[in-house]
Design a protein around this nucleic acid. Structure first.
Lengths: 143, 143
DNA sequence: ATGATTGCAAATACTTTGCACACCC
DNA sequence: GGGTGTGCAAAGTATTTGCAATCAT
């Protein structure tokens, strides 16, 4: 999905396309697969737009999440992480370095039978695995 | 699991059993199923022990998590929530009121095949569903 | 033109830290 | 007695807010 598609989608949803938003979307595209934090996105955007403010970054990220173009990942670590890969997939989180990696997820079968949903209407499903990545495992062996 | 078992486990792990820790464990037992936040636990304990400090609550919760007697849930909301039900289960989170409800989870089959694990060694799996609870759905209809 | 969006700076919310004193084993 | 555990208060980190000025449409 190219940055232009994002801009179109913004307009379709009655939102304006500003240079700031373009820059943020650009960074999201460049960092695809790294699951950056809001702060990381902020820092990177600030490199080209020194006046960028936190408010704008957070606003824009929330809007993209609302529109459904961006995933906000609550992984149990301090900060949220963002993922422009909105296809159905799971995540592995390294407890050592915090790295987040995509895993193709075949959890289409993992649904809650209505009799157990207790009246909830569910819209999202997220599967998270935690453990240690190869690098952190190697570092642990060295000690 | 009774509070006494928790105390024994603490001792087994070389930790001391203090009145503060007893009180926190007591509250965890009383609030089972509500997935309280650290702050909620703090407030409740403070009712009987006015001198209780945040530090002690956080320390104790972390210790219990380390020992494996308590689950720390990162659900994508601001705060962590704690769960003394350590059996394998999933959670439903209400995006309206923040309520967290247990769901029996048969996701024993949902594992990552080694060829996709990219060298990760995984120790935890957590399945989270998001949506709206019956109460919030009803409130939305009223508008 | 008009209202959405921005930058700023301060506020908020949750959690962690450092340290002297207290208390469990 | 020795060292873990505690309370206090302050600091840290992530995110949100209010508002006047600015800019996209």
């Amino acid at each position: 999905m190219t940055p232009d598609v994002f801009c179109d989608q913004l307009r379709n949803h009655g939102r304006r396309v500003t240079p700031q938003r373009r820059a943020i979307i650009q960074v999201l595209a460049e960092t695809a697969g790294t699951h950056p934090t809001a702060e990381q996105i902020f820092t990177r955007v600030q490199a080209t737009m020194p006046d960028m403010s936190h408010a704008t970054v957070y606003n824009t990220l929330h809007e993209l999440v609302e529109i459904g173009l961006l995933l906000e990942l609550g992984l149990g670590v301090r900060e949220h992480r963002y993922d422009i890969n909105i296809s159905d997939h799971a995540h592995m989180v390294c407890l050592g370095c915090g790295r987040v990696v995509d895993v193709p997820c075949d959890c289409s079968g993992v649904d809650i039978p209505p009799e157990q949903a207790q009246g909830f209407v569910l819209t999202e499903r997220h599967l998270v695995f935690r453990g240690y990545c190869p690098d952190c495992l190697a570092a642990m062996e060295d000690e």
